[in-house]
Nucleic acid binder design. Structure first.
Lengths: 162, 162
DNA sequence: GCTGAAAATACTAATAC
DNA sequence: GTATTAGTATTTTCAGC
């Protein structure tokens, strides 16, 4: 699938503000409404646009604590991994899960209300799986959190997988 | 500001899928359209709903590399921090910035196309500020990435700042 | 606070160019 | 790709309870 400058501009507008009407997007990219709408439709069907969501303020909802948890596996087997993921799955505080290269095997971004809530999470995590090590890094402040991708890094025309 | 069960349910629906029409949200929370719409409006004005955005597929756009960069400051002064943030600001690959408690001072989530692109980022970062240490943790795979907050952890009625 | 209905806007689809 | 059209759905406002 290829994206030209117009596609990238449309996607960039939508990933910043999905409430912009198609007519204005068309204006900004120098297209008329119909082809602009068709492009958006195409990207939605292709899954390039995965979803349209509302972003909420964590502080306003009392979820102002973010902790990054670095986990080391006790053994590097498919079984251990399956068990680990099964436990993670049920823990709602876990927002992001990344498998890592290097010393640590997994990175979790955990969002909770306060320290007692984090302790409850920690209990459940360590009760569910055996871990070689757990390193919790507490965030004092979130200075930036962008859901938008850096599309300017894509350049003019890019090509991607299938 | 307080949120009752209905508020939390409305917000939960919207943070998962912002395309759901107000009429259906009203149905699901047991309200008629107008009061449901008014609640959404109120949350938007209060900033509880920060934005409505489209989420894009990083792989489809050739941005499949995520690196977490842990940074240690050379000195813990306001000046150093201001300089660091000024450099970070101009680096588009940096998506999230967290100030940390503990050994490391900052965590960056960096999204780039490939290793050369990360190298260019690294060059710019280290050229712009003096750092005591930089620890780059490469993600092999993203198993989960939720923009939604774990509202179920809020319980029935919650109270938050101002 | 709620209901119900009307008005304004935006979306979706089809047409001919 | 453009321009125009029309039908549908949604949002938003306005009365009244």
């Amino acid at each position: 699938m290829t994206f030209d400058r117009i596609d990238l501009k449309i996607l960039d507008i939508l990933q910043r503000d999905a409430t912009v009407p198609v007519a204005r997007i068309a204006d900004q990219v120098g297209l008329s409404q119909t082809p602009c709408w068709k492009r958006i439709q195409k990207h939605e069907e292709a899954g390039v646009i995965r979803a349209r969501v509302a972003l909420l303020d964590p502080d306003a909802l009392g979820l102002s604590m973010t902790v990054f948890v670095l986990v080391e596996a006790v053994e590097h087997t498919p079984d251990w991994r399956a068990g680990f993921l099964a436990v993670i799955e049920r823990l709602e505080a876990v927002r992001d899960v990344y498998r890592l290269a290097g010393t640590y095997d997994f990175l979790l971004r955990v969002v909770v209300a306060d320290m007692p809530a984090f302790d409850r999470f920690y209990e459940k995590l360590t009760a569910g799986v055996r871990l070689r090590s757990v390193n919790s890094i507490f965030a004092l402040e979130c200075l930036r959190a962008e859901t938008a991708l850096p599309l300017s890094a894509c350049g003019a025309g890019i090509e991607a997988r299938s």
